[in-house]
Nucleic acid binder design. Structure first.
Lengths: 103, 103
DNA sequence: TTAATATATGAACAATTATTCAAATGAAAA
DNA sequence: TTTTCATTTGAATAATTGTTCATATATTAA
């Protein structure tokens, strides 16, 4: 038997949401999109060019990033500019990069 | 055409490794294991009890956490105690939790 | 209006993955 | 030794997921 009082276990819902958030970070294409958006806002076509992917594939991934509140967008005519939603996104990215680069 | 000089894009290998790292965080079971290990080291059976999973399922997930250098272990007879490998793990977890809980 | 461009969407396919179950280690106890 | 306990491992299955392709929507240009 374990002493459960020593364990600060968040609710199933919180755990699920945190895991879902990291799942969004857990894909190379989305990681490249996040990297590209660190300094500038970019439209779908530009992101597709930078990542060497089709605009369709990028659009699908942007939808996932949008749902996770990691990116936001603004429309200008037929162009849609995407940018990172807040500073957390870069902070999480940097923590991951630190772990990778110092092992 | 995009001005690529403005984009600090890590190498494909680094991007891949970062995505792989977050993929490991992107699972509820592994998230609960990490939570349980934040304060104490625990053996496989205890983790199984805390998470309501079979020891086999936990062992499979611990192997993944071990490969990602997120947990380490020590043996004492037939018992294997697992603990978090370094402070990064909790830091990444906390950043994720912050993002979830403040939206 | 029609044509062209940028983005989004839905279905389909291939690939990955978490859990279960059964069996195999490995270590201590009887 | 044999038994028991803790953990690991491999195969199988079900479920999830990223990309492609074709098509749809929306905006601007002609």
């Amino acid at each position: 038997m374990v002493n459960q009082s020593k364990i600060d276990m968040p609710s199933d819902e919180i755990i699920f949401d945190i895991a879902e958030l990291f799942k969004v970070f857990g894909d190379s294409t989305r990681m490249r999109i996040i990297c590209a958006l660190r300094e500038n806002e970019l439209c779908v076509g530009d992101i597709a060019e930078i990542t060497n992917m089709t605009a369709s594939a990028i659009s699908h991934q942007l939808r996932i990033l949008k749902q996770a509140k990691l990116v936001k967008y603004r429309k200008e005519g037929k162009i849609v500019y995407y940018s990172l939603d807040d500073d957390h996104v870069v902070q999480i990215f940097n923590k991951g990069r630190e772990h990778i680069e110092e092992v």
